[in-house]
Amino acid sequence: MGTPNSDEPHLRHVERDVLIPKIMREKAKELCVQHVEVFTQCCKDSGMLMVLKCREENNALKQCLTKHYTDPQFYEDCKQQYIKQKLEYERTGVSAKHKAQRLPTSM
């Protein structure tokens, strides 16, 4: 492991190996949305035979996702997104998810 960037906060094991990869999965799924939709439709149309009938669609989806999962720049982008969210939470005490789900106080 190289020397950490002094501008970045220290990342715990769970952040590096669980939380950042979770962001990667979510973003990769968005970037591969066409493959996800085609595979999902194939599964709906094929019923119990989806394992046999949807191999091509499944392989295309796996290739798209793997391309992103193995891209060091994609990891770095997701890590920076995580760090930004973490710093915002530390500053405000409000997570990004809760901020988006808040209801107006005056109803």
Rank of each mutant, 00 (worst) to 15 (best):
K79Q: 12
M50Y: 12
Q73W: 01
C43E: 08
E30C: 05
S95M: 04
V33H: 15
S46F: 08
L87M: 12
T40K: 09
K22R: 15
D45T: 05
K97T: 13
C64M: 08
Y75T: 00
E88R: 10
K44F: 05
N59E: 13
K29Y: 04
N59L: 12
T92A: 03
L61M: 11
Q85S: 13
S95R: 04
V36M: 08
S46P: 07
T92F: 02
K44P: 06
Q63T: 08
R55V: 07
T92R: 07
F74G: 06
N58C: 10
K44W: 03
N59D: 10
K84R: 13
C54L: 00
F39Y: 12
H68M: 13
L49D: 14
L65P: 00
L61Y: 08
V94K: 07
R91K: 14
E76H: 15
Q34D: 11
R91N: 10
Y75A: 06
K97Q: 14
E37M: 12
K97S: 12
F74D: 08
Y75K: 04
L61I: 02
V94W: 02
C42K: 00
C64A: 05
P72G: 13
K97L: 14
L49E: 09
T66G: 09
D45S: 03
K29E: 07
M50R: 12
K97V: 14
M50P: 06
L65M: 13
M50Q: 12
M24L: 04
P72C: 15
Y89L: 11
V33I: 15
V51Q: 15
R91A: 13
T92Q: 00
C43N: 04
V51S: 14
K79N: 05
S95G: 05
F74E: 09
K62G: 03
A96S: 10
K44R: 08
C43Q: 09
Q73S: 07
Q85H: 10
A60Q: 09
L65Q: 09
K97G: 05
N58P: 03
K79W: 06
T70P: 12
A96W: 05
